[in-house]
């Protein structure tokens, strides 16, 4: 007998400010992620920094994805299918800390975010479910 689902997949969309990395996103961001992983080599990081637009044009990413990379708009890149484990390589190439990169999506300044983390991080209260508002 097959096991039954423990929850409906729709519930994965019920978490505030959160996007789960699924097949759709993995397809949508495939070339964006290929670009990100290319930054795992020093010579590629150098080439990217010397001519960002030209470097991006080697990859079959969408124009929207390219622009979001140029803007370092991680919120938009997540929206366009990106996953942070790939995207953080852009931040590392820029010499940004992971905390600074993550804070850029949080709706706070890097300093406010750092203070929140020092004070124990963001509480899950009210952020568990859109539907249940808990």
């Amino acid at each position: 007998m097959p096991r039954t689902r423990l929850y409906s997949l729709d519930e994965l969309d019920d978490i505030p400010g959160t996007k789960v990395f699924r097949a759709r996103e993995s397809r949508q961001a495939y070339h964006l992620h290929k670009f990100c992983m290319s930054l795992m080599k020093e010579e590629n990081r150098k080439a990217f920094k010397e001519d960002e637009r030209g470097y991006l044009d080697q990859y079959a990413m969408t124009e929207e994805q390219k622009e979001a990379v140029l803007e370092r708009n991680l919120t938009k890149l997540i929206d366009l299918g990106g996953n942070m484990y790939f995207l953080v390589k852009i931040a590392s190439t820029d010499g940004w800390s992971a905390q600074k990169a993550v804070s850029s999506m949080s709706g706070m300044s890097a300093e406010e975010y750092a203070q929140m983390m020092l004070a124990g991080g963001r509480s899950p209260e009210g952020l568990r479910s859109i539907r249940d508002k808990n």
Binding site: R3, A23, S26
Partner: peptide
């Protein structure tokens, strides 16, 4: 057929098959 593939992948993992997803 990506929708069916995603569904089959999900059900197989629920049924404790440790499949590998091939994106390319």
């Amino acid at each position: 057929h990506l929708d069916l593939a995603a569904h089959v992948a999900e059900q197989l993992v629920i049924d404790e098959f440790d499949i590998t997803l091939i994106n390319e």
